[in-house]
């Protein structure tokens, strides 16, 4: 019995989906097996068996705790942040029709950092609002400011305005990073600059189960929104007016999707600090692999982002023995050259 064309497509999609999911599982396993200290794989597996299947292997409680309470949530958070930031980057790139759009580059991450620091360090809101909410407000304010700046500079969402929004984003990032430093410096006693770098470079070491219960739903909501709006995002290929003539309520879609982007970015930043280049590079890698249709691109971007950030986290813990590099350093080391490639390719494009 031969398969019809659409069945073949279905099978190949199923195959690719399975492959992608397997890659994610392997990455998570690597994240649990590789850490600061060596723990034999057999103990890792026994711990998982104890916790998931209720087995009763006798294990050192510290080993078990490290695997179940540190490494596993850390890997899951890395996956959520990777996919959340990558999805955010993809949505911004499509909506703004700008290959360089990314929550980090457009100042959203910097704004989220400022918001989070304003709540935790400067005590704004007097404990009534959470750090995530502060980060969200910061993210939205930063993006609004960058959008206004870009618009005033004649940019906006046209093909010709690509430069302006990136420049405005850089200016916005600088402003909000300066504000973050200002808040920290102002409210601190005389003490060295320990810890400021956390917000600027990202750090996954604080990942625990309660964060997982926040990160997983947010990452899934981000992915769901982007799948739900996949056709709308496709319709932006020829610009906002073209999308409008294809029946897309442009303003509403922009507001909703940018809102989701700000939410996802803000929550991720409030958990791990701001991690650059994931949102910029991963969507391009995904486009290269599965094409530009958002129905496929969204899940692929999320998956690659998740695997990428888990891998980057494992590298950050192992590349220099006995020392943990900030994860932002790893993503930048991969991302900056990729950024250059995108710029050069963009120049060559007709």
């Amino acid at each position: 019995m031969s398969l019809t064309a659409s069945q073949e497509i279905y099978v190949s999609r199923l195959g690719r989906g399975t492959l992608g999911f397997a890659a994610l599982v392997v990455a998570v396993l690597a994240g649990i097996c590789i850490g600061e200290t060596p723990i034999p794989v057999s103990i890792v597996l026994q711990t998982l068996a104890n916790r998931i299947f209720g087995s009763a292997y006798v294990l050192d409680p510290i080993d078990m705790g490290v695997i179940w309470n540190y490494r596993l949530p850390r890997a899951i958070i890395a996956a959520c942040c990777g996919s959340g930031l990558a999805i955010s980057g993809m949505v911004l790139q499509s909506l703004l029709r700008n290959a360089l759009a990314d929550p980090y580059l457009l100042g959203i991450s910097a704004g989220a950092s400022t918001g989070a620091v304003a709540v935790t360090v400067a005590g704004m809101g007097a404990g009534a609002i959470s750090m995530s909410l502060g980060a969200f407000v910061g993210a939205v304010v930063a993006f609004a400011l960058v959008a206004i700046m870009a618009r005033a500079a004649g940019g906006g969402v046209t093909l010709h305005g690509t430069g302006q929004i990136v420049l405005a984003g850089i200016a916005g990032s600088q402003l909000f990073n300066a504000l973050t430093s200002f808040i920290i410096t102002k409210s601190a006693n005389a003490e060295q600059a320990r810890g400021i770098m956390f917000w600027l470079l990202g750090n996954l070491s604080g990942a625990r189960w309660p964060d997982v219960w926040l990160a997983v739903p947010i990452a899934l909501v981000g992915l769901a929104a982007c799948i739900w709006y996949a056709r709308a995002l496709d319709a932006f290929a020829f610009g906002a007016e073209s999308a409008s003539s294809l029946g897309i309520p442009v303003r509403r879609v922009q507001v909703v999707l940018i809102g989701f982007t700000a939410l996802v970015t803000a929550v991720m930043v409030s958990i791990v600090g701001s991690i650059g280049f994931v949102g910029l590079v991963i969507p391009h890698a995904a486009r290269f692999l599965v094409g530009v249709r958002h129905g496929r691109l969204g899940p692929a971007t999320a998956l690659i982002g998740a695997v990428f950030l888990i891998t980057a986290d494992v590298l950050s813990r192992t590349i220099i023995p006995g020392q943990v590099l900030p994860i932002g350093v790893i993503t930048a080391l991969v991302g900056a050259p990729a950024f250059a490639v995108i710029l050069i390719r963009g120049r060559r494009a007709p």
Partner: peptide, 29 residues
């Protein structure tokens, strides 16, 4: 907008893209 687009199709001047889309992708839109 959706109801309008089911009635009216509009061919713009100079609608361009930098996306690596195919002819089929564009017409599917």
């Amino acid at each position: 907008r959706r109801a309008v687009a089911q009635l009216i199709a509009f061919l713009e001047q100079q609608a361009e893209t930098t996306e690596a889309i195919t002819v089929k992708d564009a017409v599917d839109l």
